[in-house]
């Protein structure tokens, strides 16, 4: 067989060759033991992450007895899903929809406010030098590494002082402070905005505000994607803040509402004798429907946003 023959594309590779290529592609230089170990671990964790989610989706279709009798990953009936949905909608005259509306409202306002504050700040910290700049950057770094839950109780005292407790503002306003956003914006512009471009525009008589609006902002799309994702996620799942700041249940968001729903109904333990005052007739499927109501929007955002996270905007913010 000549050299040319083996290179001809229309000649099918032998079984052995195909196996060889498959081997190199999949096992490569990890070794056969390493190959098995690698996929063993990866698939084990796939089960860890996937099975609970799958179970939750299937649980919407099962009644309480079916949950016990059917295999855990079996499907119940579509009718049960519809019933569970109906019960959730009818709970306290549609209170769940009110909570969903609150969640959307708090998340949207929080997102808008935080981006409006952190993007101009991060931009100017990157391109201008002014007294107080280093101090502001340091404070940003320190507060950004502080978990938000560290400030919830002190913030309760503060909001109480200005009589904002139990108003939507007690949830929306604190969300406006987003130091991580400012820091990422700062890094983004400091490393990717050509200073010459700005100088040229200034020579042409462009004002600082116009510069920001017409040059800097249009360049920031990937940054906006990442910031919106992080902020949406934090605000949508915010529990500690609303749990402490709100006591009127009409103002709850979905996470606090879910906690209230589970505490007030028999949904988690339908078979047990409930304590007095607990609403009976609710089953686990209702919790699953409620949960999916919270999870699905986030899951969609996660799917869209993954590339921004892997894309290295995070890692760009640290000296490698």
């Amino acid at each position: 067989m000549s050299q040319i023959d083996t290179l001809r594309p229309d000649k099918r590779p032998t079984l052995l060759q195909r196996w060889g290529r498959f081997w190199v592609r999949t096992v490569g230089d990890t070794g056969i033991l390493g190959f098995g170990l690698r996929w063993g671990v990866l698939l084990l964790f796939a089960a860890y992450f996937f099975i609970p989610m799958l179970w939750l989706v299937l649980a919407t279709s099962k009644s309480a007895p079916q949950l016990l009798e059917l295999p855990p990953l079996a499907f119940g009936s579509f009718q049960r899903i519809q019933e569970a949905w109906q019960r959730i909608i009818e709970y306290q005259n549609g209170e769940v929809l009110q909570w969903a509306f609150n969640s959307i409202r708090y998340t949207a306002f929080g997102l808008a406010l935080s981006l409006a504050c952190c993007i101009p700040a991060g931009y100017i910290l990157a391109i201008a030098r002014f007294p107080g700049r280093r101090l502001l950057l340091w404070l940003t770094l320190i507060t950004m590494l502080l978990p938000p839950s560290a400030l919830v109780l002190p913030m309760f005292m503060e909001l109480n002082l200005v009589h904002l407790i139990n108003t939507p503002w007690s949830v929306i306003l604190p969300a406006a402070f987003f130091p991580f956003g400012t820091y990422l914006t700062y890094i983004y512009y400091a490393s990717s905005l050509p200073r010459d471009l700005l100088d040229a525009a200034r020579v042409d008589g462009c004002s600082e505000v116009k510069l920001f609006r017409h040059i800097a902002l249009p360049l920031a799309t990937p940054l906006l994607g990442l910031l919106a994702f992080i902020n949406f996620n934090t605000n949508w799942n915010n529990f500690f803040g609303p749990y402490v700041f709100l006591n009127d249940d009409r103002l709850f968001n979905l996470p606090v509402g879910l906690q209230q729903f589970v505490a007030a109904t028999s949904a988690l333990r339908p078979g047990f004798n409930p304590s007095p005052g607990v609403m009976v007739g609710y089953q686990q499927a209702e919790i699953a429907v409620f949960g999916l109501l919270m999870i699905v929007p986030v899951a969609i955002v996660f799917l869209i946003a993954q590339r921004y996270v892997v894309g290295g905007a995070f890692t760009g913010s640290i000296k490698g």
Binding site: P255, A299, F302
Partner: peptide, 16 residues
């Protein structure tokens, strides 16, 4: 798959 499970968090995670 690993990433998306991050959507299940807070109270619903505890219940699950």
């Amino acid at each position: 798959l690993y990433f998306i499970s991050g959507a299940v968090t807070g109270p619903i995670l505890v219940l699950v």
